[in-house]
Write a protein that binds this DNA or RNA. Structure first.
Lengths: 349, 349
DNA sequence: CACCTGGATTGAAACGTGTCAATGAGCCGC
DNA sequence: GCGGCTCATTGACACGTTTCAATCCAGGTG
């Protein structure tokens, strides 16, 4: 055990570097920010001084002066969800390339916490933010925009374009792809296992599923049942099994389409515990294609989202908004892709 | 589509609030930071002005003046790993309680990137950091400390105590618990499937496993084989199956202990593809107890780490270091816990 | 009434950087 | 050799906040 050395290290700033190199502070600043404006000889001299004094720039000073910091926020619904972490990686990578730091903020699906985090971003004078809003109420974000911080909405295609950019995946198409797949296998009774319908993505996936049945000349009202759970995690999936199976073998769905891989994995576990086999007795389809979907047995058929690309594109959009003076809000829409694995099979009576 | 409103919103600062409330800027600052020093009447007047003008404090200004910012870094090996995300949640929660923002930085297991991130923390004059170092070379972190930024090492029990605090889990005990469990089931040929031995945690787990065999009067050199892969992800686990099975049924291990749940899940998948059943033909033990360990079939027996607590404790330690002037580096060691599920069973010839 | 005390408030001086108008140094062409 | 030009550099100020010594005021005491 030893005591922390409270080194009263005198802070070396731009002015000390300047003195050491025999130039003015302004020149040092130029070397740092617009090297092309300064003659090579002096630039080298300044760089030498920087190295020798082990100078590290103080970003508080610079963002105070310039009015804007060099970090962007990533406001996420739930750090734990593997879907988001993949997105985070995309944002991180793209931000790193433009020298921006990423501040991770977790709303933990709580409105109060989202509000606090938005406020934090405003206090930091963050350059921008990539945001997954907690619900349809965007007033906090509009406020943030008025404070001068730009943002891009993620996975929320319905933001009005006069409010901000958005990057999302076509949830309707995803639901439809899942529906077509099941219908193609001969299923006619499906259950949509989902989280709260307050979440827009979830609603769209449901509509897509129904559209697929309609397209095939089947009545969605008769064919598609819904089981709604309060959260989108594995435990809730497991807990929902009884509701899913309600009605006995004649009424019971031939297939379960889950709004989420986590729900799907939970439901698969629950089905197994009740002696039902996937896919022989029930087919299961998930959504997201998290890494683990490939590792369970049987592999989970699921609607894949380009998670990494999603984050990367959002950050790229944000970047372009930050650099161009004149900016027109954009809306990028990815198309999901069905990945067929072992958890779905043709229906046989 | 509409053009971003470039509102030339004049910035309202502490001085404008002061004028509006008829007090001096200093008083406003006091209201914000040490409300007890200011008389109730004026405090209320200032607060009213703040609300009316929609003032939001500028953290650049305050950290410039005070010399230290109010954010802490979380330097992580790989944002994607579910182990880290759980840790992140713990850090987040604890930081939020003390009003600190968490800056997430991803080393992506690359030394160069870790270095850049450490530099970023120094530039931000971060109050502190929770760090998972990429390898044994802590020189960057020592440098960071000299810059005045304190840190707590995570999951790295071997940092010298004169360098910094650390919070970790007893990897030796974890390996031993796994070993005892397998020996108790009658296994005498085990393979340790692992990532690079350069990682300290991995080495300790291996030693623990060997210690268990020794304790039981068995020769570790004869009983424990090692298969080393370059990375700790599922794909590598799958790829390692052939190496694990080398030697045919007589030589083949009765149990595989993996340094990581991800490896374990990969190897289970690979074993299944080759027609081997878990646990009937081979027992598998993982490490970490990620959420998904409970969802595969059979459930994965694994050594659980208190992930959330780990993060939370690290942040708490950091906090105490930041607040107390005099500080003695601490070393916290958690004990892991074996969670037995279906992937392990008694050996029968 | 003069004096003291202690709490509330003030004013000015930093913190480290970016910006920009002004200055200086060289160079070319007439 | 001179005016005019460009490119490099300078110097001073402003950004919004915290801090701290100095000031003010009210009330109590002798």
């Amino acid at each position: 055990m030893s005591t922390r050395s409270r080194t009263a290290r005198r802070t070396v700033g731009i002015t000390e570097v300047a003195r050491h190199a025999g130039v003015s502070p302004g020149t040092v600043s130029n070397v740092l920010n617009r090297p092309e404006r300064v003659a090579e000889a002096t630039r080298l001299r300044v760089e030498a001084a920087i190295a020798e004094l082990d100078y590290v720039r103080n970003s508080s000073g610079s963002s105070l002066r310039s009015g804007r910091s060099e970090s962007v926020g990533l406001l996420v619904l739930d750090v734990t969800n593997p879907f988001f972490t993949e997105v985070a990686r995309g944002v991180e990578d793209e931000a790193a390339e433009s020298g921006l730091a990423v501040v991770l903020l977790n709303s933990a699906e709580a409105r109060e916490r989202q509000r606090r985090n938005v406020r934090l971003l405003a206090e930091q004078r963050a350059a921008g933010a990539v945001v997954m809003p907690i619900d349809d109420d965007l007033s906090d974000l509009v406020w943030l925009n008025r404070q001068g911080t730009a943002w891009v909405a993620l996975d929320r295609g319905d933001v009005a374009e006069d409010v901000g950019c958005s990057v999302s995946v076509d949830n309707h198409a995803g639901g439809m792809a899942a529906g077509r797949h099941l219908i193609g296998l001969g299923h006619e009774r499906a259950t949509f296992l989902t989280g709260p319908f307050a979440i827009e993505q979830v609603r769209r996936r449901h509509e897509g599923l129904r559209a697929a049945f309609e397209e095939a000349g089947l009545d969605p009202d008769a064919c598609v049942r819904v089981v709604e759970q309060p959260l989108l995690n594995p435990e809730q999936g497991e807990r929902a099994v009884d509701a899913v199976l309600a009605g006995g073998p004649r009424q019971r769905p031939q297939a379960v389409f889950c709004a989420n891989d986590q729900l799907a994995l939970g439901v698969m576990k629950g089905l197994g515990q009740r002696g039902l086999r996937v896919p022989e007795d029930v087919s299961v389809v998930g959504y997201d294609n998290v890494d683990f979907a490939d590792l369970v047995h049987p592999g989970l058929t699921t609607v894949a989202q380009p998670k990494y690309e999603l984050g990367r594109t959002a950050m790229r959009l944000l970047n372009s908004e930050l650099n161009h003076g004149e900016h027109v809000h954009e809306r990028v829409l990815f198309t999901p892709e069905l990945v067929v694995r072992g958890s779905t099979a043709a229906y046989r009576d």
